[in-house]
Design a protein around this nucleic acid. Sequence first.
DNA 1: ATTGAAAATGAAATTCATTTTCAATTAGAA
DNA 2: TTCTAATTGAAAATGAATTTCATTTTCAAT
Lengths: 165, 165
Amino acid sequence: MLQRRIDDHAPPSREDMREAQEIFYKHLKRVGLKHTEQRDTILRTFLETRDHLSTDELFRLARKKDAKIGFTTVYRTLKLLAECGLASEVAFHDGVARYEHQFNRRSHHHMVCTDCGLSVEFFSPEVGKLEEEIGRKYHFDATRHTFQIYGVCEDCRKKPSRKLI
Amino acid sequence: MLQRRIDDHAPPSREDMREAQEIFYKHLKRVGLKHTEQRDTILRTFLETRDHLSTDELFRLARKKDAKIGFTTVYRTLKLLAECGLASEVAFHDGVARYEHQFNRRSHHHMVCTDCGLSVEFFSPEVGKLEEEIGRKYHFDATRHTFQIYGVCEDCRKKPSRKLI
DNA sequence: ATTGAAAATGAAATTCATTTTCAATTAGAA
DNA sequence: TTCTAATTGAAAATGAATTTCATTTTCAAT
């Protein structure tokens, strides 16, 4: 699936990277897992991206740095990263799980073009408030939410259409 | 997956049912498809439910009315119903596509318990406004959105935990 | 530095929902 | 009734997600 995007934030700095690694290592230690070369490479690769990556996409990137990294390891590492809050799943409903790194980022949401896959980030503090409010009302311990808007972007409205999502 | 739910609306009346059928038949005619016994049974079954059904769940229900209805037909009919607005997909992110019928219902959203699968409906007009607003801002022709809140319900907070989603 | 148990790895196999194929059947217009 | 296009549903295919398992690696205790 095509991955274009529009956003407005910088990639993580050297120190950000180090801090993320520390978070990851502490998490590994906490749950009794080991620090490995592969996990390191995968985290580094992940943090360097600015996209919403599928496991396969991250696998291809990580493999460029270390040709013997396997898909399965990337798959499992992504789960570990999600566990300790460094990655979070974004569901674009195209049948593929995607992740983005949460480092140094404001809470945001996505609007996705159903024609070309373009994703636009937007920021809306109201949504977070709503999560809290509704959770309180129905006595849920609300932990997260998903909010996506789907539509057709300006460019695609001008083009002959082709459905991707 | 367990499907409990909390909501506050009545099942469709006899007339509602008829109206939905008419919408469906008109849609079929419009796109040059035929009116069949199976499609009829599947629509009727679907409208009688109040749950968020997976294709397989609807298939099992429809089969009770007509033992020779196949999974594939239910699958395809659900797509047709979604096309003409009688069904809409709700993504609970548990790996299964679910549908609910849109007949006689206010626009609503779901909060889902990640432990037991309980879903609570809630109503929040702000979310619709947000869709419109963000779409305008980024020049998208916004057509739909998804909004779900995830958390742990009151009951599950008291029980020993078991992860389902 | 060595050892050994526990964890990690990754290729391959499996699972499972979804989607497609295709031969037989059916709807409905002429 | 006849004919053609659509429908059906069983089975096969697809494809992402997950598990298995033999081998390799990590790391804490020697």
